[in-house]
Design a protein around this nucleic acid. Sequence first.
RNA 1: GGUGGCGUAGCCAAGCGGUCUAAGGCGGCGGUUUGCAAAACCGCUAUUCCGGGGUUCGAAUCCCCGCGCCACCUCCA
Length: 438
Amino acid sequence: MYLYNTLTGKKEEFAPLRDNTVRAYVCGMTVQDSPHVGHMRVFTVFDALFRFFKALGWEVRAVQNFTDIDDKIITRAREEGIDWRFLADRYEMEYREVARRMNFLPLMHPRATQHIQEIVEMIEAIIERGYAYESGGNVWFSVRKFAEDYGYGKLARMSLDEMLAGARVEPDPTKRDPLDFALWKAHKEGEPYWYSPWGKGRPGWHIECSAMSSKHLGLPLDIHGGGRDLIFPHHEDEIAQTEAATGQTFARFWMHVGLLTFRGEKMSKSLKNYFVAREILEDYSPDTLRHLLLSAHYRSDLEFYPEKLDEHARAVARLRDAIAGVEEDGEEDEGLKEEIYGALKDDFNTPEAFGLIFSALDNPTPAKLRTVKGVMEMLGFRLSEEEEDDTLQRLVKLREEARREKNYDLADRIRDILKMVGVELMDVPGGTKVRKVR
RNA sequence: GGUGGCGUAGCCAAGCGGUCUAAGGCGGCGGUUUGCAAAACCGCUAUUCCGGGGUUCGAAUCCCCGCGCCACCUCCA
């Protein structure tokens, strides 16, 4: 298995370091708003990748955090006039519901606020080892000191000068150096706080991931991943904190998923050009969304537009129909399987894998179809149509009667209307086939 | 301004030195089929990979110069 490692800028052979178990940490959401389709891309990629690891015979121990304390959560809760914990819970629950529908493997989902003790201990360790200082109730990380001993900017490939050049420095008089970042933020009136050796306050951004990953997985992690926009400063700072606290290597492989774009631009909260995952799943199947999100290589940016859901719904429906009648038991096509696995082993090239899968549909044999089905299920597709729907059945019956009476006007109208909601009717010998596309 | 990356058919998207007169999906066109359709199946849909030079026996793939786009350097998956 080869994976591209952001840290080295190369594809490298990957295998878990110990116990045949892949230890992976994926940066999850700050639960400040509804998960959107850009978030889903990262989690879908890792879900499919972890499933592939299992297919290769490895165990997977994966953690995906919820950051549930943060400036934006506080601000947002204040705007809505609700408790910040209520806001965080609301979006965590929304994520969990979306994850369930997406058929994501169950992962450990620790929350930042349940790890204040670990966070405080880690900060103490960093201070003890001389890489952080307390000032006015804040604790700052000494970037220059750390840079001298360990190097800073390894992941982002940036020099300290480069960081300063474009930096819009947050003017905080308690900082010794503009590059320093907060490990602990002193309490401000009206904000949530916890008690610490430095007084009341709350954790900075970055430290929660260092603390939770070390605690739940142990060092070094085999894989640490997330969206590409997290490389700097978030992941760079996670490395700095963890190495400063422990002196150990933090993670062996860094994986970064490309961004979802809309009309060529990054899908983001600030540009308000995002699509909410829950709303998409009201109209389209999880398989459709999964196929769309895996249709480009995970490191590339992927262009999203709503009509694309229809395109992928058609592709998935065709594939599902093609393998529908295959008998479960029997030989697989080992050659085909090896080809597909070969593509996936090469830095998880899912688009190439789909290319092979759809090509196999041209000259199908039962063995090939079983292989295709097996691979799709391995990647997390359910491949089943949703449960039967009473109203739909009645409409189909009504239309069949109309056709018997040669009332084609009514029959066609029913067919047209159902098509508008993603249900296609096909008159085949012996009845009408119903096919849900979406 | 600095640092990465990208530019492949109508759209999306693989390929990254020879098997490429370039995979796959969606769309389109023609045919078989059908009450008409749809689906399915068959055939067609880039002699060419942003433009211009170069390296090489050979380049979409490597190098140089343009042009265009994006991301990161600020919160972001």
